[in-house]
Computed example of a mutant assay.
Amino acid sequence: MGTPSRDSYDVVIVGGAIMGSAVAWFLTDLGFDGRILVVDRDMSFEKTATATSTSCIRQQFSTELNVRISQFGAEFVTHLREYMGNDPRVPQLGIRNFGYLYLADTDAFADDLRARAAVQQAAGGATRLLSRDQIARLYPFYALDDIVLGSINTRDEGYFDSMAVFEWLRRQAQERGVEYVEAEVTGIEVTGARVQSVTLSDGTRIACGQVINAAGPRAGHVAQMAGIDLPVEPRKRYSWVFKAEQPLDRDLPLTIDPSGLHVRENGGGTYQAGGHFGDDPAVAFDDFTMDHGLWEAEVWPLLATRIPQFEAIKLTHSWVGHYEMNTFDHNAVLGPHPEIDKYLFINGFSGHGLQQAPAMGRGLAEWLCFGGYRTLDLTEFHYDRVLSGAPQVEKAVI
């Protein structure tokens, strides 16, 4: 249990993984001169959505704003050192552009891919639609009898070192004076429709000018502390890493199979698969139990069906992570609460938060520093839409 050095802060951020750290870093980068406290219940971050993710970035979304958000994410990743003041300690990062390949097995899904591609291309994305024959020529290892169309982008889509990005956001934020404390927030005091303080599990009360909910899969729980109904729940997502007896002769795009399985290149003859099957219920925050039967019953058969070369593979390790699923519209909830003053959201990313952290952290920092957005207008993500029942649906959720 950590102890904050003060009893009052201008900003308290609940959650210190990539979203909370992105907000903290951008606040310091924009010249915010107040005191910032980041509180997280586990500073190892090993069970966070940040640490258990697929660690990839894409622009193939169904809404223009989400495309542009990930475009900035790619720019930030590939120019990380420059954004961080040319600090020589910061690594020069790139994106391994094997791309995402969506496979459609119905005419309706194919039409949906065409509509998404039009949105992506209009925003400057490099999405290409592929016929079954074109997919076969580019990637001859797929079995494609049931496929009618594919969609791929190999520019700024693929793997990046997400943990390096997170580590440097956090490290530089701390070096610039942001205080990180390992503790659990157990209460948020709201008086007269205004946030007054947060309470830690040892009873410590911390007065705050602003509180930011960056609690990932726990975001709904943290919102309830302030009497707010936030439709964000933890949902299990499984990951498996396996080695192929005969590796593919070229990079495997992150392939989104119609079955719900996805699989990508991992390097060195190894590959990473993920997904969920059947019901997708909310789970307990601490439920990371692996269903070991899924590999034999679901995953391996699906892999071998789509890529026959994967009949001879060996599972090397697996893990379970959580999505912070926004059950309302699978999109971010960001910005101020319209009725509770000094309470802000950065939640509900439904599996695409890692790549969106730079733009979302920058946007929320702009709101705090300038009272509005200076770069991307993120207003459509505000909580107002939840209260009014007006979803901004993102269809491209994996």
Rank of each mutant, 00 (worst) to 15 (best):
Q121C: 09
E245H: 12
A226D: 13
Q59D: 02
R205L: 10
T191A: 13
E75K: 13
F242D: 14
S350Q: 03
E82G: 08
S8V: 02
V119P: 02
G99Q: 05
T186Y: 04
T379F: 02
E64N: 01
M84C: 15
E339T: 09
T54Q: 08
D40C: 04
Q246L: 06
K243L: 12
C369A: 12
D156Q: 04
Q121T: 13
V23S: 04
A136L: 11
L27K: 02
A17Q: 05
S53N: 12
R235I: 14
L344V: 02
S259Y: 05
L27A: 07
G34A: 10
E182Y: 06
T305W: 10
V241S: 11
F328D: 05
L368E: 00
I228T: 09
S201F: 08
V198W: 10
G361Q: 07
L37T: 00
I346F: 00
Y238F: 15
R218W: 15
L334W: 11
F72C: 10
F160M: 03
M1R: 04
A365N: 09
R41M: 11
D133L: 11
I340F: 03
D7K: 13
V195T: 06
R237F: 11
L248M: 11
D107H: 06
P217N: 12
T154L: 05
D257K: 01
V12E: 01
T154I: 10
D111Y: 00
Q210G: 00
D146I: 01
Y323G: 07
D33C: 01
Y83A: 05
Q196R: 14
W295R: 07
E189M: 10
P231K: 14
Q121W: 01
E157F: 03
Y271Q: 07
L378D: 05
D156R: 03
I57D: 04
V11H: 00
I206Q: 07
P234A: 12
F76L: 09
V198Y: 03
D202K: 10
A136K: 15
E245V: 14
E311G: 15
S350L: 07
R128I: 02
A297F: 07
I188T: 10
Y373Q: 05
L303P: 07
Y139L: 12
R35G: 05
R205W: 03
E175W: 11
T289L: 09
I228N: 10
T78Q: 14
A173F: 08
T199V: 14
G158W: 09
E182K: 04
S5T: 13
D286V: 07
Y83V: 07
I147V: 15
R235K: 15
N331L: 04
D377N: 13
P231V: 12
D286L: 06
V178G: 09
T199R: 15
S70W: 03
V195W: 04
R264D: 01
W168A: 05
